[in-house]
Structure formats: structure tokens, C-alpha cells
Amino acid sequence: MNLKVHDRFEETFTVSDHIYEGFISMFRDKNPLHTDERFAIEQGFNGRVMHGNILNGFLSYFIGECLPVKNVIIHTQSIQFKNPIYLNNKVFFEGVVTNIFESVNAIEFKFSFKNEQLKEVAKGKIQIGLLI
């Protein structure tokens, strides 16, 4: 196994127009919090709040493309959303290996996403399996 506990990975993502429009186009979540600037501001936000599940797309990219192994599958994941993200925000991702279960070829990570002010926007855990 190429990974060990405390291994750390970092990525930077941008919630671009392309991603935002693509998400809405694919999943059709046009809730006004995400699409109506005025509505979102009335709810106390600074503008349209990006869909939290866009971050799950970044997580998928991390697991599928950024690890030193490609024979991976996601077993479980959990995420808590802490703060809003807005269009064109950069988010800084950090994933750390917290547990390795060699008996069943499973690896657990904790992860967080921070905004440009280094405020946590989401955090969680993800467990992957290595396919043999």
C-alpha cells in the first residue's frame, strides 16, 4: 500500500461559472438560494450560495485523480457544511490519511475545505477501498 497514516494532500479548486452552471444543468437544483442574488441576500448571505454538493464533486476528483493509486472505490463519506461558498471562490482542500485497515484494504481520510480567508467551509470523513 503506497499510503500511510498522516499522509497529507492539498488541492485548490475554484467554483467557476462552468462548474456552477454545469451542476444546475445536470442536477436541476435551481433553488433561489443558489440562483437568485436578491433572495440569497435577503436570507443573510452575501450573494448566491453555491451548492454544497459541488464540494462532493471536488472530493470525487481528489479520490479518483490525486491519489498515488487508481484502483480505488469510495465506501462511505460524510460532510458537514460550515460556511457558504460563492461564485468564483477558491477553496483549499486538505485530506489527511487517518486510518489504514489493511485487513480489508480500506483507507480513511479526514478532509476540510477552506475559503480564501482560511475559514472552514466544510469538513468530513471519507473511506475508500483499494480494489485488488
Partner: peptide, 16 residues
């Protein structure tokens, strides 16, 4: 897999 992982965590052991 989830059962083994949970048991390893709960008992703080590792199986082969």
C-alpha cells in the same frame, strides 16, 4: 468491510 473496520476501531485492534 464496514463491520471489520468498525470492530477494529471499537476494540482498537488490527486484523490481518
Amino acid at each position: 468491510i464496514q463491520l471489520v473496520v468498525a470492530i477494529e476501531k471499537d476494540f482498537k485492534i488490527r486484523f490481518t
